[in-house]
Write a protein that binds this DNA or RNA. Sequence first.
DNA 1: GTACGATACGGAGGGCCCCGCCGTTTAGCA
DNA 2: TGCTAAACGGCGGGGCCCTCCGTATCGTAC
Lengths: 187, 187
Amino acid sequence: MPHHQRADARRNYARILAVAEREVAAHGADASLERIARVAGVGSATVRRHFPGRAALLEAVFHERIEALCARAAASVDAVDARAALLDWLDGFTEYAASARGMAEALAQDRLVEPERVSACSVQLEQAVEPLLRRAAESGAVARDVTAADLLTLVTGIALATERHADPAAEGRRLLELTVRGISPVR
Amino acid sequence: MPHHQRADARRNYARILAVAEREVAAHGADASLERIARVAGVGSATVRRHFPGRAALLEAVFHERIEALCARAAASVDAVDARAALLDWLDGFTEYAASARGMAEALAQDRLVEPERVSACSVQLEQAVEPLLRRAAESGAVARDVTAADLLTLVTGIALATERHADPAAEGRRLLELTVRGISPVR
DNA sequence: GTACGATACGGAGGGCCCCGCCGTTTAGCA
DNA sequence: TGCTAAACGGCGGGGCCCTCCGTATCGTAC
């Protein structure tokens, strides 16, 4: 079969991606591309060839995780309690972002750099929450003027602001809860 | 009078700070220190001498602005409507962060690097909102379990997430409003 | 007015990183 | 097995950050 990716290219791609995951987990979104290349045992040019630009690498790194989140959203779209489903998903996202260093940064980046690409992580996520949000809104459990983009921006912001706290997951959950119920006291 | 800062040192300090303000406004929190030095017409070592580390520079850049915010808080601590005063301040902060590029980043940084320094921006801000928050809580307009740190983290997060949006100020205000009233519909 | 000491300056050099170029290797098909 | 295009990786340029150290300058004392 002609015009297909060569076998070694595929292998290097996998190698690099594997190293990149560890490296990003360790050093955040601004991990050294050169270092990744060294550890993976390839030239730095090869990294740039497979992933043009840091954004592309980050996207690949978080791709499956993002998909997992999307799948989760799809799974709970038929839940009985629409509001609970939405909140649960947001909670999952927050917890996730807290454990996956650099993801929030990466999201914040690509969402404004190329807001049109369908494969962009932020777009996928948006499309994933949208049904959840709509159902919740229809059942009257969530305000009408809230958009999926709003929600993503909010949780991304929370993730960014808590990323280097002592206990990001706990802080994130706490802030998300505040955001959901509002700062005002329970009526 | 001995043991005082030399005159040229003072001048260079001012020069650098002035350039740094423009440079940070243009390129965000990770503006090039070397470039600042070049534009200011001093050696790069001189910049590092006056401001050891990027954090110190950013702190100096935003210092007066932060103080302005603190003053604003102090001024409205005796307002009739405690809740309105608090929300107004938060709104001001958000608008401010939207216009001052890099400030949110800088805040997020120093708040976890050195949470004990009294002169640290985040600490000052925290102390400034605290009275506002307490009064609002006492009047029952704000939930009791909300801390000043929570509020700052939230608005910082919003600022971070909206920093490079098309219209950061508008987006920030919108998200802040959502956060304040909660995502749930008005009862 | 001058000479001295402390203070502040800035250039040089090393390390790391990102990027683009280009000669060389190698996989895959004939 | 030979050929071609795909893929590789080393090299050099440019930047940034940082440290060190010789030197210029300020401020003061004489």
